[in-house]
Design a protein around this nucleic acid. Structure first.
Length: 359
DNA sequence: AAGACGGGGCG
DNA sequence: CGCCCAGTCTT
């Protein structure tokens, strides 16, 4: 595109955005802290999922100071069900950094933003453009999908090098007048018109520039290498109660999958030769004999990179076994004070439905 | 350069 | 059931 075409491209795009762009809670504000929260929540997560979480989050943690001072467990509780929980932990540690090093004000330059844990190249650019009006293109999946179609770019977008290529291209396109609107318009275009499968090219404000549209090859773009298949793991989930009817729950490790979240004890089934060996392990570790729940309950929980097959066992702790680190006895009614991953919320639902005596 | 890291929506 | 989503961190 020459300079004239770039101007026209921008004009069409922004005009469409001002007329048809989405009105979203985090677009009602110029508060960099709120924009930051929204950008983190929106990583790999769709807008409609984020909206209620965003509203609740800023109401509970209205300023960086409040979030910095909050217990991590409360932050995770507000993130419960949103997934990628390290985002929440990184956001809080990032906010603490901002409170200490920058007096609670988000820095307005790329180097310092990138130094903050949880802020990568996308979020830094989004903040620079949307909170500080700087002409930084925010390279995300939407932008790469749109531009790969417009310019017929067939590089694999899961490669790092390709991201740099789009960064170069987009920085030539972005206008200084309203960089925030430039980035947001490409996001809205990607979400509303230039969608992955269901494209709506007739309504596209820049279809006259789109080489893929010209060739009818929209669905061939972007090019993305396939992901490996998820592994399957089999677990027993243990519903262990004590004399008072409280449930035994455990907090997961500080790192790795679902870090810091709570769950009912899980026993990896594939590590035992037979049921007897497994039962003896459970007896030793938890002081309980467990059997499948009366209405057998097995279910599958699917992550992007692995699959859990879970089956629910129940038992009563007869032998007193000392409570280990990160374990707790909790009455049913207090389970909702702890952040549980969705895989275990399904167990709580099961209890609600199948047991009378949860007072 | 690859994997790990969640959960929901949609055809 | 497979793909996708306003990515980042770790290895």
């Amino acid at each position: 595109m020459d300079a004239q075409q770039i101007r026209q491209f921008n004009h069409n795009l922004l005009k469409w955005f001002y007329q048809k762009g989405r009105h979203l809670p985090w677009r009602e504000t110029n508060n960099p802290y709120y924009i930051w929260i929204s950008e983190v929540m929106l990583q790999q997560t769709q807008v409609n999922t984020v909206i209620p979480y965003f509203n609740q989050f800023i109401s509970r943690f209205p300023t960086p100071d409040v979030l910095a001072d909050a217990p991590e467990q409360e932050v995770l509780k507000c993130w419960e069900g949103l997934g990628y929980y390290s985002r929440a932990r990184n956001l809080q540690s990032g906010v603490r950094e901002v409170v200490e090093k920058y007096n609670g004000q988000l820095p307005d330059n790329k180097e310092e933003l990138l130094s903050i844990h949880g802020i990568g190249p996308y979020t830094a650019a989004a903040l620079l453009s949307m909170a500080f009006s700087q002409p930084e293109p925010a390279i995300d999946g939407n932008l790469m999908r749109v531009l790969s179609r417009v310019f017929l770019i067939d590089d694999d977008i899961s490669k790092q090098k390709t991201r740099k290529k789009f960064e170069q291209l987009a920085s030539e396109l972005i206008a200084e007048t309203d960089p925030s609107a430039f980035n947001q318009s490409l996001m809205d275009l990607g979400a509303m018109i230039c969608r992955p499968k269901k494209t709506d090219c007739e309504q596209c404000p820049v279809n006259e520039f789109c080489l893929a549209y010209d060739e009818g090859a929209q669905l061939e773009y972007p090019v993305k290498s396939g992901k490996s298949k998820p592994r399957t793991l089999n677990y027993a989930v243990l519903l262990i109660t004590d004399k008072q009817g409280r449930y035994l729950i455990e907090q997961r490790p500080e790192k790795g999958l679902l870090a810091g979240m709570w769950q009912f004890p899980m026993v990896a089934l594939d590590e035992y030769e037979d049921q007897h060996q497994r039962a003896s392990y459970i007896q030793t570790r938890y002081g309980a004999n467990v059997i499948p729940v009366s209405e057998p309950f097995s279910y599958t929980h699917r992550f992007s990179h692995l699959i859990w097959n879970l089956s629910l066992l129940e038992g009563w702790q007869l032998d007193q076994i000392g409570l280990r680190e990160r374990q707790k006895w909790v009455p049913f009614t207090e389970l909702n004070n702890y952040p549980f991953p969705v895989a275990h919320q399904k167990v709580i639902e099961w209890i609600k439905k199948n047991r009378q005596n949860h007072t």
